[in-house]
Design a protein around this nucleic acid. Structure first.
Lengths: 163, 163
DNA sequence: GCCAATTGCTTGAAGCCTAAAGAAATTCGG
DNA sequence: CCGAATTTCTTTAGGCTTCAAGCAATTGGC
């Protein structure tokens, strides 16, 4: 009893440190996401998912299929269907069936959609810069590196599950 | 015209680095969150928000008010109302009106709720450990530090907006 | 004591999101 | 060429989430 702290004792593994890390990561993301969401809403009356979808399309002048979007945004297919529906409705997106495969829907930004997105994106970039304002360039680099490592580790873990 | 690249030119500030950092942060969180969500669903048939709410209550044996929960979870009041409703319905939560302030609802885990949560939490911790498995202890410490700095910076930024 | 402001929660409308099932088109082995 | 498997997208049911409006209880100034 007096010797309960010997190093030989196998504790049932303590992962409290990783748990705290995960919670902190989640907190940061939630915080920033809420901030961006609120500003997009206030200044442009647009939702974050709509903005994200337009951001994907802005990088693809030749358009994307719904599946592509779904993979890139890491959301379900059904989700994209509805999102696209609303953005076509509001005139920001153009949607057409592929010539070579009639299952495929190709979507693009309309002229209006692109113009509005560019305006929003410019402001958005300054908001993000402001969010990270207190980090030094070195901090930013180091964080990028560690998050890359985290992403790789998480993907490996996810792979282990599905396999 | 031949001199368009002089360093005197004030570029409209390039924050591409911070933007990439934000996207990477978001990707990591989305990835891990999706993983946790899927596993909770598969193994325990429970949603992530329910799990998160129970996690808050597990740390508060004397119960919490809905407002407390709302602040801690960083979600809206209305959101908590519905979440609590469903968890009371399923027998995981106990809800009663405060003796001293009839506006206030105090919620606690029931015996069932606590037992189920503890089981889930134990597994959950191993999933998280697995997600971060490729990070060294030093990586974890460094990431914690940088995320703390990020959180502080983001909060300051959010404060600037609302002020 | 009274009324205004505040606080705690609920409600309603709209949109986001997932998982699962299903419809339509394509691909591929034989 | 044919049928099975696959791929792409939509639909459905259920749940999550926000914002804004509203109700009830409390608090604080006067």
């Amino acid at each position: 009893m007096l010797d309960s702290e010997t190093k030989a004792v196998e504790l049932p593994e303590d992962h409290a440190e990783e748990l705290r890390l995960w919670l902190r990561l989640l907190t940061c993301t939630t915080l920033i996401e809420g901030e961006v969401r609120g500003r997009l809403r206030e200044k442009f009356d647009v939702t974050l998912p709509r903005f994200d979808l337009m951001a994907q399309l802005d990088k693809a002048p030749d358009g994307m299929t719904l599946s592509d979007v779904s993979k890139r945004m890491m959301v379900s297919n059904g989700n994209v269907t509805g999102l696209v529906e609303r953005l076509v409705e509001s005139g920001h997106l153009d949607r057409r069936t592929s010539e070579t495969d009639r299952r495929v829907q190709v979507i693009r930004l309309t002229k209006l959609g692109r113009a509005e997105f560019r305006k929003m994106a410019a402001e958005h970039e300054t908001w993000i810069a402001d969010v990270f304002a207190d980090l030094t360039p070195k901090d930013v680099r180091e964080l990028m590196r560690l998050l890359a490592k985290t992403k790789a580790s998480a993907q490996k873990s996810a792979g282990r599950r599905k396999a």
